[in-house]
């Protein structure tokens, strides 16, 4: 089955993002496909490479990054939500005259249309939020 995942809460504050990660892992382990993981609301904070949790805690951003790279996942951060919350890639830095970027690889910043497309293309869109 083809899944899409929406993560709409920030890391650490809320378990939604941990559950989404565990779900994604389980989906792949069962041989299903993940069309896209979309990050919205505070979920965009899952994509900052500047995250530095204590060493004895899980590194949520690194975990996503590794899962995405190993499985070639499409990880999309909503541009409007990212702009509000200071999640920046090269394009956004230049467009908005900022002096830094913080988007982790392989996340990419794109529009909400990517969420709608994921809903259309996937057999199931599973939402992890409050």
């Amino acid at each position: 089955m083809k899944f899409a995942i929406l993560v709409s809460e920030g890391p650490y504050t809320h378990q939604a993002t941990d559950t989404a990660y565990q779900f994604a892992k389980a989906v792949l382990a069962k041989g299903h496909e993940i069309f896209r993981v979309f990050f919205y609301h505070d979920g965009v904070y899952n994509a900052t490479r500047l995250t530095t949790p204590p060493q004895d805690d899980r590194n949520i951003v690194k975990r996503w990054t590794e899962l995405a790279k190993a499985n070639n996942l499409d990880m999309v951060v909503c541009v409007a939500a990212a702009q509000r919350r200071g999640i920046v890639d090269d394009g956004e830095m230049q467009r908005n005259g900022k002096d830094a970027t913080n988007l982790a690889e392989p996340f990419r910043i794109s529009g909400l249309g990517q969420l709608i497309e994921a809903g259309i293309q996937a057999d199931r869109l599973v939402v992890f939020g409050d």
């Binding site: 529009g111 909400l112 249309g113 969420l115 709608i116 497309e117 809903g119």
Partner: peptide, 10 residues
């Protein structure tokens, strides 16, 4: 989200 979904003619 509603406005974008509508723009996608959903």
């Amino acid at each position: 989200v509603v406005l974008i979904a509508a723009a996608f003619e959903q």
